[in-house]
Design a protein around this nucleic acid. Structure first.
Lengths: 195, 195, 195, 195
DNA sequence: TATGAATGAGCGTTCATTCAT
DNA sequence: AATGAATGAACGCTCATTCAT
């Protein structure tokens, strides 16, 4: 009689171990053996739940983005327009100690996605969400008269995305130059310019 | 008498091969054997010119930054203030087909620098230049009355740097969403907001 | 359930292969690949059982000394004084065909121990046993009146150790000049001089 | 016109550099490159003077033994019998700070000679000298009535050689247990037993 | 299903040796 | 003769993956 296990729960344990390792030691710290150890599960079982290392990594990033999406949805359901956008950027674009790990994972994946063909298919689904959501919130804001009516929403959304990407990158790689507080200041002052 | 070779020229052949590989296959494609093949020189000779892989990588990034610095100096000597800044950002922050490879190398190194202590000493020398130069040009621009006198130069410089980092990152990783032309448009419209 | 293997037994297979190689080809014949081949196991599995080559070598020497200690303990429990000492030297100091391999390994290690700091910690535990045991047996012999009462035990023990080291070295390196029979003769005649 | 060089002098420079390296870093420190550096001569020229690394090592050991023979000859021409033997053993078997290097080289070579077939041919010529000379001096001593007339010279010579080999080995590998002074004491007390 | 032993290709690095000048 | 650049086999070690139990 086969042991009954929650297949998806096991996968999540492994993929969370993967993200902890990646945050702590970088991508090169993520070996299959290290993941099994970190998950405190057996090495062999890792290959029951994932066909390959790539499979594991892809699952980890999907989990990361879906949990982020989930969080974002909450802001958006509570606020709208510029207020929601500000929450979105301040809560998710900013790197502080508690979000730093998730950001390292995210950035690491971005490069993997960009440079490794087998990951490329995940590209758009990971990215489009952001841009779409920003566009929508800006549009709401414009309709509510919160921002300048003459602005081209599509271009501005792109600019906001660009700016938040820069905040994320520098906040991660140069925390001394761009601490969390300054990140927030830059974001709010950027949004102010749209009014 | 020994075979006469230009030591530095050989090093450059290897480090350019390194950059081509990194652009094509990412950092994990840069194996010493692959570099030797790409350079069409023997495996062993690679170790005559570089003590280690780290040495090779560091040489490659130094070469990259010095050639960039050289180019930047030209803009700055011809222009000043906002005009020079616009040149700086448009000519160097923008990713097009011909600069894409250099950008991949640059970004790859940023992560290596940020995550690997032995590379950390290169950190500041690679980064400080950017921020300092932007600050200086903004300062010139303010004195020339090109930008709003009430702006805090230091904060604005940081914001410009952040924005250009975002342009670089998205331009590299999502060229379809942010083609060169749009990169340029975002940059000029961002600078316009400073006036 | 995993393949069940006796971890320690596998380690012994490898370390015995190591000793065979060392005896046959010297220390420089002991490459990890050669050990795996000699053990008729795969290269990779060698690293499941030993963290490093040093680990393998240390295990081999420990195994060698512990088996020797075991043998020595038997003589000592059966005999005492000069008789026990004679057994000790004749049974263990002498190089014949069957003990030659063990001696090569032993001598090889002595050099490794002497010249390589990381092995130095094994130094005393490997050596002290010999000198202490010789001292003790000589002391017994003196109390039993078997040897000259005026002899300084400590110095004589050192001399016996020295002589047996010489027998080992020449018996190993110059078997034609010092065959087993002559080794034995030298030892007994040396001990006779102590009476 | 070819440059005129003293071929043999160059070889000696290299082989002395070899011995310095071996004494300092052990056999594994003796790389062809290190030898050329230590000799402060060019890498390539090393291969003009020696066909191979083995050739270099063989030359070094020949030089070592011949210089030792030379020194020994001096004692023997000044003294005879037991006196000469005592000089021989005390001056050459003993390891002190100034002779330690030569002994490391010598021991290292002994193992190389014993374990590596291509060196085996040097075996007897390196060794026979010692035994022959000891035999001869003991014979002189017996004829002069310095030692017991009933002793079998051949066996005793072997025993002396054995003992001095032990002194050398332990003096080298365990200097704390067998310092120079104790080495000397053991030797003289050993010779006394022959009277 | 679960486990961890087994496998071998690949890594960065070292090195004796050859060769062009 | 003299130089050092060029070469590639071999080293210790890592790792994703497969497999026997």
């Amino acid at each position: 009689m086969p042991k009954i296990v929650d297949h998806e729960a096991q996968r999540e344990i492994f993929s969370q171990a993967t993200m902890r390792l990646m945050a702590r030691d970088g991508l090169e710290g993520v070996t299959m053996r290290a993941v099994a150890n970190e998950a405190e599960l057996s090495y062999g079982s890792l290959f029951h739940y994932f066909d390959s290392k790539d499979d594991l990594l892809k699952h980890a990033i999907r989990q990361l983005t879906s949990s982020q999406t989930h969080r974002v949805n909450e802001y958006v359901s509570q606020f709208s327009g510029l207020k929601a956008l500000e929450h979105l950027l301040c809560d998710d674009a900013i790197i502080n100690e508690s979000s730093r790990d998730a950001w390292i994972v995210w950035m690491t994946f971005q490069y993997k996605v960009a440079l490794q063909p087998s990951f490329a298919e995940m590209h758009s689904e990971l990215i489009d969400g952001w841009l779409e959501r920003i566009t929508q919130l800006l549009s709401e804001a414009q309709q509510a008269g919160e921002i300048n009516a003459t602005l081209d929403i599509k271009t501005e959304a792109m600019a906001v995305w660009t700016f938040s990407a820069g905040v994320g990158q520098l906040g991660l790689l140069h925390p001394a130059s761009l601490p969390a507080k300054l990140q927030k200041q830059l974001i709010t002052s950027y949004l102010d310019k749209l009014r």
